[in-house]
Amino acid sequence: MNQAQTNARVGIFFVLGIALLWITFQALHTGSFNVKDGYEVTAPFKSVRELKVGNEVRMAGVTIGAVTAVRINNGRAEAVLSIKKEVPIHKDCVATIATSGLIGSNYISLDLGTPASGTVAPGDSLRTHEVPDFNKIMSDLGELGADIKVAVGKIGAAFSDNPDGSPGLITNVNNLVNENRANLNASIANLNEITEKIRAGDGTLAKLINDPAAYDQLLAAVTEIKNAATEAKGFIGETQTIIADVKSGRGAIGTLIYDEATAQNLKVAVKNISDITNKMNSDESSFGQLITNDNLVRDAKATLRKVDRAMDGFADSGPITAVGVVANGLF
């Protein structure tokens, strides 16, 4: 093979290589746009993590722009985003830094927002939301693993015997079981005996479990208790109402207790009754003399006897002599 053929083949392979590179570039950047044709907005973050210039900007999974700069502005990290002119971004849209897959590259993810909030103007700052960094998550998991390891070590130390020779938890439990084995066996035997009696229907508890009638009676008793409790609750409520009425001065008792005029009238009535009873007990009053004066009682009895004789004479006499008989009988 001469030198000319070799040079020709090298040239052909070079051209083919250039063509393959161009095809690959076009395949990877299908749908891309020139950043000069878009408008810029900013997205501030506490940390842009591994975000780089050229990373995509996606909205609902669709690529709508690219990161054109990453910088520090006013003490915070800030990403400058170039967005296609035909894609509006709503003001309530939130930007986050997402990752393509587990170990993929980072990109800016935007949610759709709501049209009612309006659209951002070129140069405006977007709302952002910080998401946990994968490296931070892995670091936290490592710290958690270390804490779990320490906790497991403490649990193991608590269960095992101590370095000073004192028994651990497992040894103490084992010793406790061995020392009380007879008591445990007796308790288990008693439990078996109790369960056998319950199964056989012996005893109150067994009847309650096995006898439907006993269960129904118990349920009825509980129902009656509940009804009695309900009635007691109602009675207490009525009593509270009555007490409230009395305190507020309503009703006869409330008026009697809290109404000053009624209380004064009651005092006057009691005083009058006291005066009347005092007069009745006095010898100077007619009623008192009627009770305490024996002569007056005898005179009254004599008068009643005379009236009785006059009436007898009146019955035996005619109409003409009736007046005379009454007069003689009385006087």
Rank of each mutant, 00 (worst) to 15 (best):
D299L: 15
N272R: 06
G318E: 10
V94T: 12
N183T: 03
T292D: 06
S105G: 07
A146P: 00
V35W: 04
K52W: 01
I103K: 04
N34S: 12
T119K: 06
Q5C: 03
V15R: 06
D161N: 15
S125P: 01
A229W: 00
S317T: 15
A206T: 04
G251I: 07
G101I: 09
K271Q: 11
G156W: 02
N192L: 09
G123I: 08
K84S: 07
T68M: 07
Q264T: 00
L20W: 05
N2P: 08
D37M: 01
K197P: 02
G251R: 07
V307K: 14
S109R: 14
R76F: 06
I83L: 13
G203V: 12
E40L: 09
A269H: 10
D308P: 00
R199A: 07
L218Y: 12
L126A: 10
I170D: 14
I242D: 04
A220C: 03
A189K: 09
D133W: 04
A98Y: 02
I198P: 06
S285V: 06
T6H: 11
A77W: 03
D275N: 09
R181V: 12
E50N: 08
G203S: 12
I291G: 03
I64Y: 03
S105H: 01
P212Q: 13
Q3F: 07
A95H: 04
G123T: 06
A322S: 14
G318T: 05
G313E: 12
T321W: 00
M138G: 03
A121E: 14
G237Q: 10
Q26L: 12
R199I: 01
F14M: 00
L205R: 01
A327I: 11
A69Y: 02
V297P: 01
T195M: 15
F45W: 08
S82L: 03
L20V: 13
D124K: 08
G313I: 05
T119L: 08
L176N: 12
A300N: 02
D92Y: 12
R250Y: 11
N74D: 10
L112H: 03
N172P: 05
N106G: 00
T303I: 10
V131W: 00
A116Q: 14
L290M: 13
A229R: 09
N278C: 00
T262C: 04
E284G: 13
T262A: 15
A27W: 09
T68D: 08
I198C: 02
G31P: 07
G54D: 00
G234W: 01
A252K: 15
G329Q: 02
A200L: 10
V150P: 02
T230F: 03
L208S: 07
F331L: 09
I155L: 13
D308N: 07
G65N: 06
A182Y: 06
G165S: 13
K36Q: 13
G153R: 05
G313A: 15
V323G: 05
K207I: 05
V131Q: 09
L176P: 00
R181Y: 08
S82H: 06
F13C: 10
P122Y: 05
E238L: 15
M1S: 15
V67D: 07
A186Q: 08
A60G: 10
P319Y: 04
V67S: 10
V268Y: 04
S32L: 06
R71K: 15
I273R: 08
L191D: 07
